[in-house]
Nucleic acid binder design. Sequence first.
DNA 1: CGCAGTCGTAACAGCAAAGGTTGCAACAGA
DNA 2: TCTGTTGCAACCTTTGCTGTTACGACTGCG
Lengths: 144, 144
Amino acid sequence: MSANSRLTIAAHALAWIGLYQRQGHEVATSEQIATSANTNPVVIRRLLGELRRAGLVQSRRGVGAGWSLARELESMTLLDVYEAVESGPLFAMHRTTPDQGCVVGHGIQPAMQGIYEGIEETLRHELARVTLENVLRDVLAAPR
Amino acid sequence: MSANSRLTIAAHALAWIGLYQRQGHEVATSEQIATSANTNPVVIRRLLGELRRAGLVQSRRGVGAGWSLARELESMTLLDVYEAVESGPLFAMHRTTPDQGCVVGHGIQPAMQGIYEGIEETLRHELARVTLENVLRDVLAAPR
DNA sequence: CGCAGTCGTAACAGCAAAGGTTGCAACAGA
DNA sequence: TCTGTTGCAACCTTTGCTGTTACGACTGCG
């Protein structure tokens, strides 16, 4: 499906900021998060920018700048993160319009549309069941 | 997410073959299906080849060649089709290993792995609820 | 006021996957 | 033998993700 890692990295960043704040720090830098996720700070800033637009994090500029949570981890779900960083449907329709003169070509898109909507609704429901607090707890529960 | 249309096109092809056979024809050609789906016959042959490997369709070669269903549409689900034409997980992990010296970097992958597995199981369950017979019925039910 | 550290963002390259296209060998029925 | 179709390789284009560099904007501090 050519899956991407945006949801994973975003969850990683949020868990990292949340834990860091619980350790008494005010803000986390994209540099620190990028080191933990083993990627480039710009990648982190881009993703966190999308999370900020969704109201999940805040950023400060200038010296001592960085990122902080805009809400508690308990109140954020993977659905919030998913909707912030992923766009578009899970399954795509035909790239070109099917033959409308054919019974199947005519009816296939509404049929699949209805089916896909139900499936995506279920997916959203599942994502909404997991909070970032759950994620952080699972992270800390990993055997070392 | 950069969704693709493979599941849609595969369902289209199966519905087309199923309907065509009910109209009394033995086999359908990739040319006919491609016309209905408004794409290239090779694209259809590639997809149907994967469905054949999964035991959903058969092909005949030579003159009068073409494709036919290997089972009834009632016995095929979207999960069968999905597993035949899609590979890999819905959500990807980090492209590079996160910093194992960091608590979050160390625990994030097992944590997300567990969460993603549950979600994908739910997705498979949803896909398994829809048969290709359901799809064809929905297709034929579309207002013209 | 200027310095320093960090964000914000544009620009570009590399890579992978999907989809489209062409070409041709293999096959099998007439 | 001829013909229509599959099987499949090869190649191209497009798209999206990821990584990287570069640099302006911002702001606390000395």
